[in-house]
Structure formats: structure tokens, C-alpha cells
Amino acid sequence: MPDTKDHIVSSFDKELRIIHEIIIRMGGMAENQLSESVDALVQRDSAKAELVRKEDAKIDALEEELEAAVIQLIALRQPVANDLRAVIAAFKISSDLERIGDYAKNIAKRSIAINQMPPQKSVTSIMRMSRLVQEIVKDTLDAFSNNDKDRAIDVWHRDEEVDEMYTSLFRELLTYMMEDPRNIGACTHMLFIAKNIERMGDHATNIAETIYYLSTGERIEGKRPKGDRTAFQILTPDDGEGEVEI
């Protein structure tokens, strides 16, 4: 633990350390799954995608291991103050990481389907967006391992950028679909992939909030940044702009 002093009972420290290490491992795996799944899409590598699908079970297993460790620690040690915050934070972060893993698995599945179709132009935008989310996930995990609340706040603000990229990708994909209805199948998969990546960013934001709470005992102040405006958009093939904001 990056924390102050050791407990008088040293086995308590050992248990907290195990919990901390599981999160670090889960984080590393989730990060890797994200980059591999997008690589599988970009490189049109179905074997790689298949591997990503299989690897997800390992993240799930780690989440179960962590849950068991947390429940045991709460039952046996009745942690308070920063110890309590550490185990609750680990519990929450593990479920966010598990979800990130699930999204990567879903991207892998879809890329296997997309690989049966002609190459997609939107892959470049997906790649750009995923690179940003990868950075965010990485920085979030660094903030966690260093108990760094300032870095957590920084990550928290960056989610807005992801949302904006998602909005623009949404428009891009709609344009392709309107250009040629034969694109609809592949573009729908791409849209889900983009949404998956955007959701990963949201989970990283959750983790950032948890880290801030872990470190300070307080919630991050202010409104959560939001840049996804797709819910308010209507596109019609008739108007030149192809977009109306309501």
C-alpha cells in the first residue's frame, strides 16, 4: 500500500497489500485487453480477437478473488477510516475494471464479425478514440497505485474529450450509412464498438472518483463533465447538414 504507517497487526497489512495487488493486476489486464481488442480490429486479426475473448475470463476470476478477499477482510478486521476506504474503493474499482474487460471482449467479438466485411474507413477514428481511452485508463491506474488525487482529478476531466470524439464518430458513421446502405451492417458494429470505448472512459471516470474518495474521504466537487450529445441528435437524409439539434 502506498500508505503511511504499518498496522500493529502485520497480517492486516498483508491482506490489504494482496487486495491492492489484485487491483493492479486487474488494471494491467483490462488495459491490455482494450489495446489488443482494438489492434485485432485495426489489423483485421481474428485470431487475436479470439484470444481477447478467452482472456476475459481471467479478469472475471480476479474480480471474484478480490471480492472474497474484501468480504473476508471486512468480516475479520472491521476496517475503519482509510482502511475502510481502501477496501471499499478496491471493491468498486474491481467492478469497473471487470466492465472494461467485458467491453474489450465485446469489441473483440464484433471485430471478428467486421473482419468478414470490407475494410471500414471509420477504423482510424476508432483507433484515435481508443488511444485516448487507453491513456486515460493507464493514468487512472497510475493514480491508483500512487494514491494520487490530483492525477485522478485530471483524468476525471479528460472524459469529456472522449465523449466529444464519440459524438463526432457517431456523425461520421451515420454519414457512411446514409451514403451507402450496404455500410449499415459494419457501421452498426463500429458504432457499438465506439460506444464500448466511450463506456470504458466512463468507468475510468468512476475509478478516478473512487480514487479521489479513497485519498481524501470526500467526493470530487463539481458536475461530472459530459460531452456526449448523441442522445439529442436527429439525422434526416433530406437536409444538407444532416443534423438537427433539439
Partner: peptide, 19 residues
């Protein structure tokens, strides 16, 4: 006090780290 103590000494004591 038991979730977010303000003073390090309080935190050290209630979490069993006192030293």
C-alpha cells in the same frame, strides 16, 4: 470520524497503526 478522520493521529489510532 470513523470514515474520514481529519487528523493523522486519529487515523493511526482507530485503524490500529499507532506508533
Amino acid at each position: 470520524l470513523f470514515t474520514s478522520p481529519q487528523d493523522d493521529r486519529t487515523q493511526g489510532y482507530i485503524t490500529g497503526r499507532f506508533g
